[in-house]
Design a protein around this nucleic acid. Structure first.
Lengths: 204, 204
DNA sequence: GTCTATATCGTGATAGAC
DNA sequence: GTCTATCACGATATAGAC
């Protein structure tokens, strides 16, 4: 079924998994090679260096990271609908990629940030017209008049943080992983209601 | 003015600063020694190893982390008042220690988590009686009946994430550090209003 | 393309002079 | 207590045989 995955693909996939869960400094080239079932020489043969390989993985992660935002907000639904759908999709997406928000934030904060042009990714979000649409809705009194900067921040805070803090929350409440997952589902509904009610007051 | 800070204190303070901003794997013993204006031998003379030193710094960070929660929620005010005060104090606290939430979450997620008993810190939060008080308020219809697990999560999401995501937000909106700080202040008010309105519906 | 062997460097930690 | 010198190890990266 797996078909003929090439050595290069095996290494890339292993790097993806290892880098995302441990970060650039948290792992070694050998660890990636082993995870791929290969040796270190091949890692450098295909990708020249650990840094180069990381850069590829990070950029792919940024693509994943902004893709879900862009897809939903670029669609033709009403703003409230988009918001609800986005939160739902984002929770589903993060259930599959729980390490992504921490990975992105941490690696963006590294001094030695790999010379990556982060900004181009965020331009994609702006290009969906999300901000213009919110501004218009605010003019019409349909949406609460708050800073446009606060809107994505409210959404991301309430979608990303809950998955980033999994370990801490399990300790705080003495939960198992299963119990945490159940709670996350309940929490999602709250977040959705709270944000919609706050951002679109008359939609009660 | 600085009085006689001992060598040991200088190293501890340097370690605190470096570990918090870069994490355990993100820095070296020599880097800490240099930051303290001393050499590596002294680091190990006073603290035996990098791991031992880290453990001390991490535990102090956990104290800081839960202290603000415990202080406010252990006080004698009404629940709504506590909530508003807590959010205010938390934003002020995080303005001084913006690296703390990322540091705690990241280091707790390390496999090699230094044999630290995290749980005892979170017991302190539970011991304030916060959860019982919320439960009682819910019984009385004063507070929205949501899972007790979701309450601290809503608060932390909206207090911690905004400071953790500083770099990303600056890129997303093309802001300077100063502009980010101004926005954060505006955001704090929104968060406060949103959470209070959601958790205590009749307090409008 | 793939492997073994190796060069080079930086790291944590310590020995030993003062 | 403090420093210099050094050890032992593991890291990235590459040379060179196959």
């Amino acid at each position: 079924m797996k078909k003929d995955t090439t050595t290069e693909e095996k290494i890339r996939e292993a790097a993806r998994q290892v880098f995302r869960s441990k970060g650039f400094y948290g792992c070694t080239s050998r660890e990636i090679a082993n995870a791929a079932g290969e040796n270190v020489a091949l890692v450098n043969y295909y990708f020249r260096s650990k840094s180069q390989l990381f850069k590829i993985i990070f950029e792919a992660a940024m693509d994943d990271f902004v893709l879900s935002m862009v897809e939903v907000f670029g669609s033709k639904k009403s703003l409230v609908e988009k918001m609800r759908i986005f939160i739902d999709l984002e929770y589903a997406f993060l259930a599959k990629h729980p390490e992504l928000p921490s990975f992105i934030l941490n690696e963006m904060n590294r001094e030695d940030g790999c010379n990556i042009d982060h900004q181009k990714y965020f331009l994609k979000v702006a290009e969906t017209g999300l901000f213009e649409e919110c501004f218009k809705a605010q003019e019409e009194g349909y949406m609460r008049s708050i800073s446009l900067n606060s809107i994505p921040l409210l959404i991301m805070s309430n979608c990303h943080y809950p998955v980033m803090a999994k370990t801490m929350l399990m300790q705080l409440h003495g939960m198992t992983s299963k119990e945490y997952d159940d709670n996350l589902n309940i929490h999602k509904k709250l977040v959705s209601d709270m944000l919609i009610n706050f951002l679109f007051p008359q939609s009660n």
